[in-house]
Simulated assay, not measured.
Amino acid sequence: MIPVPETEPAPETEAPASSVRERLWALANVIAPTTVVTTLLFYFGQVATTARFRYFGVYLEMVDLTLQEMLLYGVEAVYPPLIVLAILCLLVLAAHTVIRWLLSSPQRDAVTGGSVS
């Protein structure tokens, strides 16, 4: 009689569970940032619109703005900080590029950093 080796369960039995888990993880990675962005836009829209209307002496509750209008006011309030952040990122990237270019120059000595004669 030939001994039958023990075999492990087929990996196909775990595939549907892991596939569902991967799909849920991908869905969560899309929904969570969307929720955060929408919440922040609504908050900034509420604050900016309240300040704007209060300046003119109008209560925000009287205007009865929709959610879409609040989100659009939020986008308007978020643009200036995003532009400043983008400019800072570009400046850091430019400084990094210049420093790498200076350090990789073939006329520099690798040990001392000085010019090769």
Results as ranks from 00 to 15, higher is better:
2 I>T: 12
115 S>E: 05
91 L>H: 03
105 S>E: 04
44 F>A: 06
108 R>T: 00
72 L>I: 12
104 S>Y: 04
73 Y>T: 06
112 T>P: 00
78 V>T: 15
67 L>I: 12
24 L>A: 05
93 L>T: 07
55 Y>D: 09
30 V>C: 04
44 F>D: 01
6 E>K: 13
63 V>Q: 11
56 F>Q: 06
75 V>E: 03
50 T>E: 14
85 L>G: 15
108 R>Y: 06
103 L>H: 14
60 L>F: 02
113 G>E: 03
93 L>C: 04
88 L>D: 07
26 A>P: 00
21 R>F: 09
5 P>S: 05
5 P>M: 08
75 V>I: 15
3 P>K: 08
49 T>V: 07
42 F>V: 15
115 S>A: 09
105 S>Q: 12
55 Y>R: 11
26 A>L: 12
47 V>E: 10
44 F>E: 07
2 I>Q: 06
4 V>Q: 09
87 I>C: 03
53 F>H: 07
111 V>W: 00
33 P>Y: 05
56 F>C: 02
75 V>P: 00
81 P>L: 05
75 V>F: 13
109 D>T: 01
13 T>P: 00
85 L>M: 14
61 E>K: 06
58 V>H: 04
6 E>R: 12
55 Y>W: 07
110 A>F: 01
105 S>R: 15
30 V>Y: 12
63 V>E: 05
3 P>A: 14
70 M>F: 11
35 T>S: 06
19 S>I: 02
88 L>A: 15
64 D>Q: 13
42 F>T: 13
25 W>P: 00
63 V>G: 03
110 A>H: 11
46 Q>F: 14
50 T>A: 12
29 N>S: 09
42 F>D: 03
2 I>E: 06
52 R>A: 14
84 V>C: 02
58 V>M: 05
70 M>C: 00
73 Y>K: 11
99 I>N: 08
97 T>F: 10
84 V>K: 11
68 Q>A: 12
32 A>T: 15
38 T>N: 05
80 P>F: 11
87 I>E: 07
